[in-house]
Design a protein around this nucleic acid. Structure first.
Lengths: 154, 154
DNA sequence: CCTGCAGTCTACAGTAACTAGAGGGGCAAG
DNA sequence: CTTGCCCCTCTAGTTACTGTAGACTGCAGG
């Protein structure tokens, strides 16, 4: 497994070239060797590292947590408990979001079922959105709960 | 229901003052009257409008969709179908995220169960993260699927 | 050797949806 | 009149990237 350019690494890990450079810039990836002309050259270990990062990110770990995980990986011999804690924290977060989303799904379904062929004047989707004494307002800062919805795919 | 300052409106809708001003700046809220000294003064209708926005945002509708919904509200008489479409699109999105999160939950649980009291050298959380031929990699641009996880609460 | 093109470089700007802070002015009570 | 909270604008920061500009490199075909 010889040295590879950033493009190859990108291909091997499904992480975009720009993202790899970004990870380097924020210190998630070490600075690699450079060719005489300044191009980054990666060894096989970078593939592992990057897959690790990718997978952790896919699991929803924020970059800060990934950083922690990496530092734990680098200096082994300490208790697994820390890693476990990070994972549990993440699991809690995931479950919180699951609950949220399930409530959203229910409400959206209800709205759509009610809205069949009516005119806007009586459209219950709009009416439902006008209500506020509804299912979602137990926690007050619910604002940020779903703030990060990308919906780029739409 | 007399005119109210931005602070009152904020209190009545649980939307932060800065956020209200932000909504105004992006055109979600109309510019309100001003007092002689330049303070914003809102009428009761603003409460409704803001609740509508808040609720739609809580349901995960992106601001662009909220904008559409508002415009549909403003010029009624057109078919409800458009509103319905937006809601369905949102429901699809929510379901997609639900599926994702359920997979994540399963994997995190598996990881945590495996990681009980071991040392880091054998920690299966870290090991699991190193794997990549795993449950989450059917879709290739999974990168962005969970990109927006805030986890500020942690 | 030349040309073309894909790949790479840096650096900066933009995205979503806010949030936070600086630095100043307004308003009612004591 | 002062205290203290509210309000103003404007700018910058957040997260995790993505996109763009403009320049350079590396390699294959002719």
């Amino acid at each position: 497994m010889a040295l590879m350019t950033i493009g190859k690494l990108s291909g091997a890990t499904a992480v975009k070239v720009t993202t790899i450079r970004y990870y380097e810039s924020i210190g998630l990836l070490d600075e690699p060797q450079r060719s005489a002309s300044g191009q980054r050259l990666y060894a096989g270990a970078s593939v592992e590292r990057l897959r690790f990062i990718r997978h952790a990110r896919d699991l929803g770990f924020p970059v800060s947590a990934v950083r922690e995980l990496i530092s734990l990986q680098v200096e082994p011999g300490r208790e697994c408990v820390l890693v476990d804690q990070i994972a549990r924290r993440q699991l809690d977060e995931v479950r919180r979001r699951l609950t949220q989303l399930q409530a959203l799904e229910a409400e959206l379904k209800r709205m759509i079922r009610a809205c069949e062929g009516g005119k806007i004047g009586t459209c219950s989707v709009l009416a439902a959105l006008g209500q506020h004494e509804n299912c979602l307002h137990e926690q007050h800062d619910g604002a940020e709960v779903l703030a990060g919805l990308p919906s780029k795919g739409a």
